[in-house]
Design a protein around this nucleic acid. Structure first.
Length: 381
DNA sequence: AAGGCGGGGGG
DNA sequence: CCCCCAGCCTT
C-alpha cells in the first residue's frame, strides 16, 4: 500500500480512506469537468436554475430512469409551475399527475414539502443541503443534488451511479448499498467534490456512471478517468460493485372486477399503509379460484360488494412484475343492475377499501399503471 | 440493519 | 419467464 504523498485540506481526520488515491481530489475534477462540458446530455433540468424544477426532477429520478421521468417532469411542471402552486393544490391532483410513475410516496412527500416551504421558508426553496434534508422526502442525496446544482454549494452526492464510479476508481469490491460501504463512499465523495463548480462535478460523476462507467461492460477505453481508475488497472471492473442476491418474489393472485353501470365504471380507493396507498383501482378480491362459473361470480359480488351483477362472457389475465412481488390478475367483467347507490367496501389485502365511485373517466382519480393496463384489456378506453 | 415502496427496459 | 435499475422512510 502506497503512503499518501499529499494530504487534502478537507476532512483530515477521514483522509486515510483515500490513502491509496490521495491525488483523486485534485485530478478527478480536472479530468471530468472538461469531459462533462463536451459530452453531457442536454436534459431539461440541467437547462434551468430554478431550484423547484431541479428538486422536482431529482425527486422523480429517484429509482426511476431518465426516459421514464421525462414526460412526467414536463407535465408536472406545467400543471404545478411553482412551489406555491404545488402547495395550494389538493393531494389527489398531485397524485393524478404522478399516476403511472410509481413510488407514490414521493408525490405525497413532495406535496408536504411544498407546504412546509411555504410555511417555514416563505415559499422559497431553501439553499443549503442542511435545510433541504429537513424536508419530507428529501434525503441526503436529493439535498446534495439541489444544493450543488441550484445553489452551487460545495456538497457531495452519492447515488448508485456515483457509488459505482467511486468503487471502481478505488477498486473496492463492496456492495455500495451496505451501510458501512455507503458511509465510506459519502466520505470519499465529500473529499473529492471541488469548491470550484461542485454542481458540475457532481453532474459529471453521475453522467460518467450513467453513460460510460455503466454496470455491465463499462467503456473504459473512452473513459476520461481511466488514468486514475484502480479497477481498470487491475482489470476488476466487471466484478465491481458487488451485488447482493435477491430474495424470491412472492406471487400475489387477485381477482379483478370491471363493473359497469350506464357508462360508468366502479373504482375503489385502496387503504393506507400498503402498496398503491390510497390510489384507486377496480375492486379486487383474493383469487381463490372458487368463482369459476358465472353464477358463482354473481354470488361473490352480491356478498362482497352488495351488487347485483350480470357477468360478461369475457375474461382476461394479466401479470405485473414488481420489485418485491409478482402480481397475477384474473379479470372479470359485468354490468351492475342493482345496488349501485350503496356499494359495500370489501377487504383489500391488509386493510379495507376506503371509498367507491362510479366513474366516467379513469383520469378523474389517481391510479397505478396496472389499473390502466386492466382498463385497456377490458376495452374501457 | 432490514424491509416496504412501482414501474420500465431488455434478454 | 428471467434479468437489470435504486432513494427515502419506517421499524
Amino acid at each position: 500500500m502506497k503512503s499518501p504523498t499529499r494530504r487534502s485540506k478537507k476532512s483530515p481526520e477521514t483522509q486515510p480512506i483515500l490513502a491509496d488515491a490521495a491525488d483523486l481530489p485534485e485530478k478527478l475534477p480536472q479530468l471530468l469537468l472538461p469531459w462533462f462540458d463536451r459530452h453531457q446530455r442536454k436534459l431539461p433540468w440541467r437547462q434551468t436554475q430554478d431550484p423547484y424544477a431541479i428538486w422536482l426532477s431529482e425527486t422523480m429520478l429517484q429509482q426511476t430512469q431518465v426516459v421514464t421521468a421525462l414526460p412526467y417532469y414536463h407535465r408536472f411542471l406545467k400543471r404545478f409551475p411553482t412551489v406555491q402552486a404545488l402547495a395550494a393544490a389538493p393531494l389527489q391532483e398531485v397524485l393524478k399527475s404522478w399516476s403511472g410513475l410509481g413510488y407514490y410516496r414521493r408525490a405525497r412527500h413532495l406535496h408536504e414539502a411544498a407546504k412546509a416551504i411555504c410555511e417555514n421558508f416563505r415559499g422559497i426553496v431553501p439553499g443549503t443541503a442542511a435545510e433541504l434534508v429537513t424536508l419530507p422526502g428529501v434525503g441526503r442525496y436529493t439535498a446534495g443534488a439541489v444544493a450543488s446544482f441550484a445553489f452551487n454549494e460545495c456538497t457531495p452526492i452519492v447515488d448508485c451511479n456515483v457509488a459505482r464510479v467511486l468503487c471502481r476508481l478505488l477498486n473496492w469490491p463492496v456492495d455500495p448499498t451496505a451501510p458501512q460501504a455507503a458511509k465510506a463512499l459519502w466520505q470519499v465523495a465529500h473529499q473529492i467534490v471541488p469548491a470550484d463548480r461542485p454542481g458540475a462535478f457532481n453532474h459529471a460523476l453521475m453522467e460518467l456512471g450513467a453513460t460510460v462507467c455503466v454496470p455491465r461492460a463499462p467503456q473504459c477505453l473512452i473513459c476520461p478517468a481511466q488514468q486514475c481508475c484502480q479497477s481498470c488497472a487491475a482489470g476488476t471492473q466487471q466484478d465491481i460493485p458487488l451485488r447482493k442476491e435477491k430474495p424470491a418474489t412472492p406471487i400475489v393472485k387477485r381477482a379483478v372486477f370491471v363493473l359497469r353501470h350506464e357508462g360508468r365504471v366502479l373504482l375503489m380507493q385502496r387503504p393506507k399503509n400498503c402498496i398503491w396507498e390510497e390510489l384507486w383501482e377496480f375492486p379486487a378480491l383474493p383469487d381463490l379460484s372458487h368463482f369459476n362459473s358465472r353464477t358463482g361470480l354473481a354470488d361473490v359480488l352480491r356478498e362482497q360488494l352488495g351488487l347485483e351483477v350480470v357477468p360478461d362472457r369475457w375474461r382476461g389475465r394479466l401479470s405485473h412484475q414488481l420489485t418485491h412481488r409478482a402480481m397475477r390478475y384474473r379479470i372479470w367483467r359485468g354490468v351492475a343492475v342493482r345496488g349501485i347507490e350503496r356499494v359495500l367496501l370489501p377487504p383489500c389485502e391488509t386493510g379495507r377499501y376506503q371509498a367507491w365511485r362510479w366513474l366516467e373517466n379513469l383520469a378523474d382519480v389517481p391510479v397505478g399503471t396496472v389499473t390502466h393496463k386492466i382498463a385497456t384489456l377490458a376495452r374501457l378506453d
